[in-house]
Amino acid sequence: MIRGASLRGFACLVEELGGDPREFLERFAIPPRALTSEEGIVPITSHDLMLDTVARELRCPDFGLRLACAQDLSVLGRLALAVQASSTVAQALECASRFMFVHSPALSVGVEPDPRGRREVVALTYRKDLRESPYSPQAMELGLGLFHHVALALVGSLAGLRSVELPHQPLSPVSRYTEFFGADVKFGCPTAALRVERRLLDKEFDSADATIRRLAVEYLADHHTDPERLVSTQVRRVLTASVGAAPAMIASVARLLSMHPRTLQRRLAAESTGFEEILDDVRRDLALRYLTTTDLPLGQVAAMAGFSDQSALSHAVRRWEDATPREVRRRVRGAA
């Protein structure tokens, strides 16, 4: 999932391009309130597919970068308070890395060694967990563009920015990227990142406030649990990797997690969920991903999502989406 705040500016930008934002929301089963209630959450796969589709259908290859310009640090909600009140860039990045899951469990930021081996340079990385959702070029440009936009606002100048790295090939003329980032942009890289001089990490913020930061961090820690610590996250990942290749049985998953099945059931119940509920959610994510991002025959989609046959897939998709698999595929792809 991802917070609805990630769609701030979406409606205005789509309308400027001559599109109907509500039509796109309906097509991707995203509730209209996502545009007005930024604290709500939406499926990140639907969110990202919608961005890619809007860019393609409205012929706006730099849609993600444009949307980044309409946003600021406040899209991160309470996490923004902790980041802004940090004393240095390094402390702000540590906080963002620790609590980015509050915005979306599938996204992460971090500080890593320079991929090009320069000791005086570090990489400020921006990643999406592809175990949770497919790669999206437009969403990646939105995220990295916002990362750059926020860093510029907090620091005042990114004179230490050496280059920008993107995993995909350019969607727009390269000049559009260099104009946006104010630096050299390289494509086809392993990880999205801003390569900056290491000294930038020590840059102090004028907005630093130790008390506000402490209160914000305490609130985040008390009200949000890191999904990485949940047993349900481990079960979900085991099922995501095995559904369609092996029978989805709680005994098998428990064995992989070095637990007794009854212990696993108790741990999941303590997290207000259950094995069958997680399995259904994983099958839903896989089925909808294959339906909306590939041209695979429905029988093959059914097998890869762990269903016994195409009929079982159709019944499940009707339950989830109130539509047939073919209708879901047509809805997402629109006129195409």
Score class of each variant (00 low, 15 high):
106 A>Q: 07
154 L>P: 10
163 S>M: 09
184 D>M: 08
178 T>Q: 10
125 T>V: 06
131 R>L: 13
132 E>P: 10
121 V>R: 06
176 R>V: 15
121 V>E: 04
159 A>G: 15
153 A>Q: 13
125 T>P: 03
112 E>L: 15
168 H>Q: 04
141 E>M: 10
201 L>W: 08
155 V>M: 15
182 G>N: 13
181 F>N: 00
165 E>W: 02
101 F>V: 06
117 G>A: 04
146 L>K: 03
111 V>G: 04
116 R>H: 07
114 D>Y: 08
167 P>D: 01
125 T>W: 02
192 A>F: 06
110 G>I: 04
154 L>F: 11
152 L>D: 15
152 L>F: 09
190 P>D: 08
171 L>I: 07
176 R>L: 13
172 S>F: 05
191 T>F: 06
199 R>D: 15
149 H>Q: 14
178 T>H: 01
147 F>D: 01
138 Q>L: 10
123 A>Y: 05
133 S>Y: 10
111 V>Q: 01
153 A>C: 12
165 E>S: 05
112 E>M: 12
111 V>P: 02
151 A>P: 12
151 A>W: 13
156 G>H: 10
140 M>T: 15
98 R>V: 09
150 V>K: 02
159 A>F: 12
189 C>H: 00
159 A>W: 08
194 L>F: 10
178 T>C: 07
121 V>T: 09
167 P>E: 01
124 L>K: 01
131 R>D: 14
201 L>D: 00
141 E>V: 07
180 F>H: 06
117 G>C: 06
182 G>T: 08
99 F>W: 09
153 A>W: 11
147 F>G: 02
169 Q>F: 14
136 S>R: 06
129 D>K: 03
171 L>Q: 09
203 K>F: 09
199 R>V: 09
99 F>H: 02
189 C>Q: 02
168 H>S: 07
200 L>P: 05
189 C>P: 05
138 Q>Y: 13
121 V>L: 06
106 A>S: 08
195 R>D: 07
190 P>W: 00
191 T>W: 07
156 G>F: 07
137 P>M: 08
111 V>H: 01
203 K>G: 08
195 R>G: 01
113 P>W: 00
197 E>L: 05
184 D>F: 05
139 A>H: 03
183 A>W: 05
154 L>S: 03
159 A>D: 14
202 D>E: 15
157 S>C: 15
163 S>D: 06
146 L>P: 00
187 F>H: 11
187 F>M: 11
169 Q>W: 14
97 S>V: 05
146 L>S: 06
185 V>N: 05
